[in-house]
Structures are given as structure tokens and as C-alpha cells.
Amino acid sequence: MEFAKKKFGQNFITDRNLIKKIISILDPEPNQLVIEIGPGRGALTKELVQNFKKVVAIEIDKDMEALLKTEINSDNFELITQDVLQVNLKELISSEYKKISLISNTPYYITSEIIFRAFDLAKDLDKAVFMVQKEVAQRICAKQNENNYNNLSVAAQFYSDVKYELTVSKNMFRPVPKVDSAVITLTFKNQNLIKVNDDKEFIAFVRKLFNNKRKTILNNLSSVLGDKTKSLTILEDLKIATNLRPENISLEDFIKIYKEVQNEN
């Protein structure tokens, strides 16, 4: 086995049952484009190629190129040897497929960047399946009033239906990482996109409101707007208690606050 490279955060899946479970989480529609980020040695990729019409794998490690092309000699497989953050994912998407999915055994060091890239494709993707650190998975799936509910939780709920699928023992990988992982799914929906005039601006606004989780929503909003009186008026008009913290605010209320701020400007 080629050595996993620490700089790329490589931990290869070795458990066959886990691979089967991940495949079963994807929509079974065979006429599907699956974009895989970080195929590694191709254990999951081989199964994807057998089940779906087209698989495009993006791998940063050039040393894996020969291995993957040798192991997976199939017309419906395409390998892009490049840093995923440098790839225009939108250009890979085509209307010829009934479903478009993204799947990634996500390197820990770029987890947030990859997830936000998926949000950028919300209008084009049907589903994303991510294997991430368990703690990150819990944060993404956290609900209002839970301690680990944050701006990433709100963003995930804004773009998709989020589901914590399963916990994955660290012993199912080689080399064995320090922590357990989890598989989560994001099933994309567009009903929230029409509620705001700029989804990226909305997500950036929510991130600012979480700048200091210990402060109240009134204090955080006042910091963003630079005007406590105006912030107080907005929250009172929306009947949102000023002493709540960001973790107590629902997605719907964040949308209301954002829209009210837009109307005021």
C-alpha cells in the first residue's frame, strides 16, 4: 500500500461493509453523475463506477493517478488530478443526468471549504454525502438551542435537509486517525433561496451574528449594525427576545432579522 500523506490528510477506507453502507445512502438512480472528492486508493470509487452512469473523481495526490487509472479502467470514470479548491465544480455538472451527487471522505483540514463549495452548488446538486470528523458532523447537524449549533449549522439547514447517518470508528481507516468520523447527508432544497435576495450575503450575516456566542443576539446585532437602538427596534418588531443568544435563534428568525436589516438600509 502506498503511504498515506499527512499533508493531504489521507486516511483510506478499508472496511467493505462501510463502503456498501455509503453506496446505499446515495440515491439509487443509476442515471446519475457522482463527483467524488478525494478518492484515495479508489476503494469507494470502484463501487461508484459499478453503480452510476458517470463518476468524476478529484484527487490532489499525483502519486495516486497511475494506481487509480490502472485499478479503474472504465469508460464512465474520469479522474481530475488537482486540488479540489482549484476545480470549477459547476463546469462538471450536466443536465444529461437525472441526479447529481457529491461524495467525499473529506480531509479534515479543508472540511469547511468543501462543504461551502457544496453550498455554492445548491441549485445544481441533489445530494451530498460527507464523511467528516464526528465532532464536525454533530455541529453541522445541530439544532436550535443545542450548544454546538453555530453558523455552519444554520447554513446547512438553509440549503438542505441535513441528516446524521452513522458514526464511523477510526479503526475502519488506514492509517488510523486520532478521532472517529461520521457520515452525514445534505439533501438540497431551494425553498429558502427565494426568501433572501442574496444567499451568500445572508450566510455571511449569520456568521457575524455568531461572532460572540456568549453575547446576546441584541449585542451581536448591535456590533454588526453599529447601532444598538436600531437593533433593539428590529428585534422588538420581530418579537424576538433581546436576551436570547445566537444558538437560541431559529433559521426562520435569522432570515427575518436579515430581511428586516435589508429593509432598513
Results as ranks from 00 to 15, higher is better:
Glu201Thr: 05
Val168Asn: 05
Glu71Asp: 12
Lys134Gln: 05
Phe12Leu: 08
Ala204Leu: 15
Ile257Lys: 02
Lys230Gln: 14
Asn220Glu: 07
Ile240Phe: 06
Lys90Gln: 11
Val84Pro: 02
Gly40Leu: 05
Ala66Arg: 14
Ser250Asp: 05
Asn145Glu: 09
Val56Lys: 10
Tyr164Lys: 12
Phe130Cys: 11
Ile103Ala: 06
Pro175Gly: 11
Asn243Gln: 03
Leu67Phe: 15
Gly40Cys: 12
Asp124Tyr: 14
Tyr149Thr: 15
Ile203Ser: 04
Asn11Val: 03
Leu232Phe: 13
Asp27Ser: 15
Ile194Leu: 09
Pro39Cys: 03
Leu102Val: 09
Asn105Ser: 12
Leu26Gln: 06
Arg139Met: 03
Gly40Ser: 07
Thr111Ala: 10
Asp126Phe: 12
Tyr258Arg: 03
Ala204Gly: 08
Gly226Val: 11
Gly9Met: 10
Phe119Lys: 11
Ser153Phe: 00
Asn105Phe: 13
Gln32Phe: 05
Lys54Glu: 08
Arg41Ile: 15
Ser112Phe: 11
Ile72Lys: 09
Asn73Ser: 13
Met1Tyr: 12
Glu113Lys: 12
Phe77Lys: 03
Lys195Ala: 06
Val154Tyr: 02
Thr70Ala: 07
Ser231Trp: 00
Asn220Gln: 01
Val168Tyr: 04
Pro39Glu: 01
Pro28Phe: 01
Ile58Leu: 08
Asp180Leu: 13
Phe8Asp: 05
Leu85Ser: 13
Tyr109Met: 01
Ile103Arg: 00
Cys141Leu: 03
Lys6Leu: 06
Asp161Met: 02
Lys54Asp: 12
Val196Gly: 00
Asn151Pro: 08
Ala4Tyr: 01
Leu244Gln: 04
Ala142Arg: 00
Gln82Ser: 14
Lys230Phe: 07
Lys230Trp: 11
Val168Pro: 01
Ile23Cys: 04
